[in-house]
Design a protein around this nucleic acid. Sequence first.
DNA 1: ACCTGAACACCGTTCAAGT
DNA 2: ACCTGAACACCGTTCAAGT
Lengths: 239, 239
Amino acid sequence: MTTGDPDGGTPPATSDVLWLRGERERPARRAAPLTLERIVTEAVAELDAHGAERLTMRRLAQRLDVTSTALYWHVSTKEDLLDLAVDHILGEVPLPEPGPEPRAALRALLLGWRAAMLAHPWSPGLLGRPLLGPNVLARTEFVQATLTRAGLAGLELASATHQLTGFVIGTAMTDATWRRLDDPEIVTRARAHITGLREIYPTLSTSGFVDQEWSDDDLFGVSLERILDTLTPSPAREP
Amino acid sequence: MTTGDPDGGTPPATSDVLWLRGERERPARRAAPLTLERIVTEAVAELDAHGAERLTMRRLAQRLDVTSTALYWHVSTKEDLLDLAVDHILGEVPLPEPGPEPRAALRALLLGWRAAMLAHPWSPGLLGRPLLGPNVLARTEFVQATLTRAGLAGLELASATHQLTGFVIGTAMTDATWRRLDDPEIVTRARAHITGLREIYPTLSTSGFVDQEWSDDDLFGVSLERILDTLTPSPAREP
DNA sequence: ACCTGAACACCGTTCAAGT
DNA sequence: ACCTGAACACCGTTCAAGT
């Protein structure tokens, strides 16, 4: 291999001399080459910044300083890109050490799962496509492996997995809805709407459903413990 | 009030005589007047037929035999229309008689909730907006009222509501994904994809996760019972 | 191999105008 | 009050062409 001499062909015509070329004619090398990874990372950034409805191929391309059509060399469709974005953020979910305590491991994983989704509140709404990315599957594998270690099998195992994943996804979906609102006043209006219909919604308007006595994180926390209670040996609870 | 004589003014000019007007000149009265209700009903029909991504204001208008811009007189935005569609199908969920058996009432309501969503598999994906329609609220009111009747209050009530609604929504979301697929072969391919990576997903590929030993409805059924176990007095179960 | 430019067939929505 | 028609400012995606 020779030293870097990329263009060993005929010398350039004298009409093209480096020192005579204007500043703007310099290679102006792109900050980084366009790769699938850069595209996905930037897509996530755009989604975080402006939400799902504002992500367009053209805006994303602008961010990456290329033509929108250039993206199609790396990704075959916008839907594929969204699938990649979802799996990408699920990669942020830490996989706990598979220690000797299944319950703690499950709790840690599911709290992390929820945290990742709510950190990117556009993500729960994008879960309506087959979740088969490596990061999702790794997390699901972890859940099932841990449940197996806890002694579950067959229908009990399947049901437990169903319960846990359904629960994280469902609550993330509804909780993300409220976190995504740009106008916090809508929450107050929603509350007023329900309490204003006290006759129609007697329980909702008086049960604390509309108050924010407990945060959604608190609620998720205690609910998760209740579910884990039924799946793994648990500390004693009063009936 | 006189008998029907809508136009009591000057008689029509002789150049305009009923019997001389061509067939095509007849009023050609629209099948039905355009109302918000017809719009929503037809939107649901279009969604059922072709899915969420194919619903456009123009296609919907065509279905209703009007201009797309006519819709905007009745509905202020497409998003509002989708909110209406979601609440509309939730109206299909039967509200059980609030009999003396809370557990049976909850089971019936939640099974109905799931059934309605899966009957319109585009709906779970549209749950990312504040659910404040009358039909959703009525169902949520029912859940909370029944739980209250079962003796829950305060944090326990809030957590139970959170668990149940999160669970139905989350599982409906993932189950609808697979029911929406036009190509059933994708399921087989998904299965093959996981079992093909047996080293990476040892549990998933051998636990029955990919087999269809239990239908998603079966899984929902038993999981729901497990959750209800923790919320209401339940028949004895072995530990 | 990788990117640009032009083009196609659409979108949601606004608004003046008709009846 | 209710609907049409034209128009605006976009979309995702394809494809020939450049380097």
